[in-house]
C-alpha cells in the first residue's frame, strides 16, 4: 500500500558503526556460497538465515550491507526478507515458541496448549515478552502430524505435547539465561 507509507527518500533507518555482516562472514560467503549459484542473489536465502540466526532479526542496516555484498538493490533484499515467515525485521525472543495450528494439531488439541502459553507468558501469538525472552508464534503445519500436537522451541521440534511438557520447556528456557537463544 504505497499510498500509506512514507516516501522512502526521507525514511531513516537505525544504523550502528559496527557492520552486521562481518568480514569473516563475507569471506566465508564468497568462498562457500557464491560459487553454488549462477547469480549472486541465489546466495540470499542462506545469508539471511545466517543473519537471522546471529542477531535474532534482520536489521535494515544488514539488508543494505547484504545488498552491497551481492551487488543488488536493498529493496530486493527487503522484498525477499518480508516475504518469508522465518525472517523478522524486529528482534524475536531468545526462545521462539512456534505452536503448530494446522488441522491434525487442531483436532488433537493444540488450542489448549496455545491458550496455556498465552496466559502463562501474557502475550498473543506473534508477540514477544517485554524481557525479550520469549516470542510466541502460531505456525502452519510443521510436518509432524502423526505426533500432534507439536511445537518448535527454537530449532527443536517437540512432539506429542502436553501442558506439563510445555511448562517444563518454558521453565528450562527461562533458566537458561543469556546466550541460549539459537534461533
Amino acid at each position: 500500500m504505497s499510498w500509506t507509507t512514507k516516501p522512502s527518500a526521507t525514511t531513516k533507518i537505525p544504523t550502528r558503526a559496527e557492520p552486521y555482516c562481518t568480514q569473516a562472514m563475507k569471506d566465508r560467503w564468497t568462498k562457500e556460497l557464491l560459487p553454488r549459484y549462477a547469480t549472486k542473489q541465489g546466495a540470499l536465502l542462506p545469508i539471511l538465515h545466517e543473519i537471522q540466526h546471529a542477531y535474532r532479526h534482520i536489521p535494515y542496516q544488514a539488508m543494505v550491507e547484504i545488498a552491497s555484498f551481492l551487488s543488488i538493490k536493498p529493496a530486493d533484499v527487503m522484498d525477499t526478507v518480508t516475504f518469508y515467515e522465518e525472517f523478522h525485521t524486529e528482534p524475536v525472543g531468545k526462545c521462539v515458541i512456534g505452536i503448530c495450528q494446522s488441522i491434525a494439531c487442531e483436532v488433537c488439541g493444540h488450542q489448549k496448549l496455545l491458550d496455556h502459553v498465552r496466559n502463562r507468558l501474557g502475550i498473543e501469538p506473534h508477540e514477544t515478552t517485554d524481557d525479550g525472552k520469549f516470542t510466541l508464534l502460531a505456525l502452519e503445519c510443521l510436518g509432524s502430524c502423526d505426533t500432534a500436537p507439536v511445537a518448535l522451541f527454537n530449532e527443536t521440534l517437540h512432539e506429542k505435547l502436553t501442558i506439563e511438557t510445555v511448562d517444563r520447556l518454558i521453565d528450562e528456557a527461562s533458566r537458561a539465561d543469556g546466550g541460549s537463544g539459537h534461533h
Binding site: Y37, T39, Q41, G42, A43, L45, L70, D79, T82, Y84
Partner: peptide, 8 residues
C-alpha cells in the same frame, strides 16, 4: 524463485 533468492 526461492532458490534464486527472491520471494516465492
Amino acid at each position: 524463485e526461492a532458490v534464486e533468492g527472491r520471494r516465492g
